[in-house]
């Protein structure tokens, strides 16, 4: 299925204040692939994701999702294909109840009411939160908010899931549940995170961004085991690996 290919060709992005966040990024993500994006703070991960989802448009170069090239005109179309889970759940959940929040996307897609209800139910059941449907978002725990935020995106049935730090502020069990959930999805996944263990568990491929450029790109269990490469980028070996090494050396 060629229409789920995500491709960046030498993309540049410059913020209005003059900060150059992307300086020529190129890569290609195939259908069904899950890709982790890692890098130190301020290296351009979030900007990259915003460029992929049509929230920002590259100042130079090209982003295309399937056959559609991102520009002012195709923004809406791109957004329909790409589901974006934002880093802060309070930004993502803006409706007064969980149910309405999940229904927001499908309603805007112009679906009839019974279809909307069906999608909301499926999405909430998938993340195990159907029982929360009448609760207001400000009465949920952070883990529940995260699951609901994912449901809001799932309900739109996007081809591609983009997530910015999905595991931030989660306790270990919620984080584990999130990882299991992510592994259930057959979508193309692009996940930006500092949680390298999560990337190792969920993504088969990993891209390291540095100073607005692709610094390394390859299979996760190759890149995330390269200690010197990671340290050069302000990262560390994933904990599971450290433990593994520790056991072997002792």
């Amino acid at each position: 299925m060629s229409h789920h290919i995500v491709e960046l060709k030498d993309a540049f992005f410059k913020y209005p204040d003059g900060t150059e966040a992307l300086k020529g990024v190129s890569f290609k993500i195939l259908h069904g692939e899950s890709v982790g994006i890692a890098g130190a703070n301020g290296m351009g991960k979030t900007t990259l994701l915003l460029n992929l989802s049509g929230h920002l448009i590259p100042t130079k170069g090209e982003v295309s999702i399937g056959e559609v090239t991102l520009c002012q005109k195709t923004r809406q179309e791109i957004r329909r294909k790409v589901g974006f889970v934002f880093q802060r759940t309070d930004d993502q959940l803006f409706m007064p109840t969980v149910y309405e929040d999940v229904a927001f996307g499908p309603v805007n897609l112009g679906l009839p009411e019974n279809k909307v209800n069906e999608r909301v139910k499926n999405a909430l059941e998938m993340v195990g939160c159907y029982h929360l449907k009448d609760r207001p978002p400000h009465r949920l725990s952070e883990g529940q908010k995260r699951a609901v935020a994912i449901a809001t995106v799932i309900a739109m049935e996007p081809d591609i899931l983009i997530m910015d730090e999905p595991a931030s502020n989660l306790d270990p069990r919620s984080r584990r549940q999130l990882i299991n959930l992510l592994n259930k999805f057959k979508h193309t996944k692009i996940i930006a995170s500092h949680d390298l263990d999560l990337i190792l568990d969920v993504c088969e491929r990993c891209i390291i961004i540095r100073d607005g450029k692709v610094f390394a790109d390859g299979p996760s269990d190759e890149i995330l085991l390269n200690e010197s490469l990671l340290e050069e980028n302000g990262l560390e070996l994933p904990l599971t690996r450290q433990l593994h090494n520790f056991k072997q050396s002792s």
Partner: peptide, 22 residues
């Protein structure tokens, strides 16, 4: 700042100026 981010989140889910009240 937050308003900006919320608006982005709304756009991400196809907001077109209409909110349906259930």
């Amino acid at each position: 700042d937050r308003a900006e981010r919320v608006y982005q989140a709304m756009l991400a889910r196809g907001f077109n100026g209409e909110i349906k009240v259930m």
